[in-house]
Amino acid sequence: MAKQTQQGAAVLQGTLDMLILRTLLYGPAHGHQIGKHIQRTTNDFLQMQHGSLYPALHRLERRGWVVSKWETAPDRNREFKYYRLTEKGRKQLLVEESQWKQMAEAVARVMWPAAEES
């Protein structure tokens, strides 16, 4: 079972980074918020696995695309670890976005060739 999860995460990995970066474009957020946001926006289609969310966040931080800071949440009297997009992360998001677009179009051309002709 463990193996299956890992495989799923691997497939998702490339896009997960992009989704996190895109989410952070709205402003700083903590891990739970990011996960919830992705899940809600896709109408619960993408089930966020915490097992891949946190490693992904730390990986992005190590690459310098996001920075983190413990801050008090505005609505609750408690500290959360907030992640914030850096300038480097913004550029990376553009790169990943265009890559994903190309990828999606390429896949679409293979899968539905007739649509292209018409």
Binding site: H30, G31, H32, H50, Y54, H58, R78, E79, F80, K81
Partner: peptide, 12 residues
């Protein structure tokens, strides 16, 4: 740090 992060998100 990670432990705190996970715990606070879990509590949330």
């Amino acid at each position: 740090d990670l432990d705190w992060e996970l715990r606070s998100d879990l509590e949330l």
